[in-house]
């Protein structure tokens, strides 16, 4: 395994229920500190690809290595230890709505927390202080005790980013992190993810729809179509022709303006 490789994927494929093929023959390498954006239509396999990387979905074919360790072969404690290095941010935020903001952030530490206190929502003082600091960092200082479902969509996603921060990961998977937010709020969330990449040196793999955002944040782009990897390149290589190749001719008129 070569040094500096965050993710290595070989011949990855996924078939759901023995019928629906979501991914086939994906070969991909992601270097450390990259901000890799995955493009593609809904249903092209972006979410499945991201979820195969941390084994929220078990692939049916192929192998994946995380920092040189094969996660596709990992089980039990080893799998949980590998997952601890991979934080995930979701389109629907997926925070616990009935818990406070700070408890949500603290749940990022569950991979290393001691079991019994964590079942009673108890965390060490040091972790609590770090959680408060993380909330401050994403601009939610003073909202620690607010119940998560009283926060707005953008704030909820920032709680999710703080949760990812507390996990102390080496890799961030972000599945359409801004797709359910107001266009005006998208940059504020993306900038926090960018900061994790630039300041903390974390590797980011992020699926996106909006080409403007891709150009602004990505260091490299790959595109999926019908479960196949159809294109990879630099963000500024994205032009009308590559765009057609990724999204098909039918999608062109609706997205013309952004190209």
């Amino acid at each position: 395994m070569s040094e500096g490789l965050a993710i290595r994927i070989e011949g990855l494929g996924k078939v759901f229920d023995g019928r629906i093929r979501a991914l086939s023959g994906i070969d991909l390498e992601v270097r450390e500190r990259e901000f890799l954006v995955v493009l593609g239509l809904s249903g092209s396999g972006k979410s499945t690809l991201l979820r195969c990387i941390n084994r929220l979905i078990d692939p049916t074919e192929g192998r994946i290595w995380i920092f040189g360790e094969e996660i596709t072969a990992a089980k039990g404690a080893q799998l949980r230890r590998l997952r601890r290095q991979i934080a995930m941010i979701f389109q629907q935020f997926n925070i616990v709505r009935r818990h406070s903001a700070v408890t949500n952030v603290l749940s990022g530490t569950l991979g290393r927390a001691s079991l019994l206190p964590s079942l009673f929502l108890k965390f060490p003082q040091s972790e609590q202080e770090r959680a408060v600091a993380a909330l401050e960092r994403v601009g939610l200082g003073g909202r620690e005790r607010h119940r998560a479902d009283t926060l707005s969509g953008g704030q909820q996603q920032r709680v999710a980013i703080a949760r990812a921060l507390l996990q102390e990961p080496k890799l961030i998977l972000a599945d359409e992190p801004v797709a359910s937010l107001d266009p005006a709020l998208r940059h504020s969330v993306m900038r926090h993810i960018e900061a994790l990449n630039k300041d903390e040196g974390l590797t980011v793999v992020c699926s996106l729809h909006d080409v403007d955002l891709v150009r602004r944040y990505a260091t490299r782009v790959v595109a999926l179509r019908d479960g196949h990897l159809v294109w990879q390149g630099r963000p500024h290589d994205l032009n009308r022709d590559t765009y057609k190749e990724i999204y098909g001719t039918e999608a062109e008129p609706a997205t013309n303006a952004t190209i």
């Binding site: 949980r80 590998l82 749940s107 569950l110 290393r112």
Partner: peptide, 13 residues
């Protein structure tokens, strides 16, 4: 299933 996914992804048991 969203929160379950999110908590699983943290490496929780």
């Amino acid at each position: 299933p969203g929160p379950v996914e999110a908590i699983t992804a943290t490496g929780a048991g």
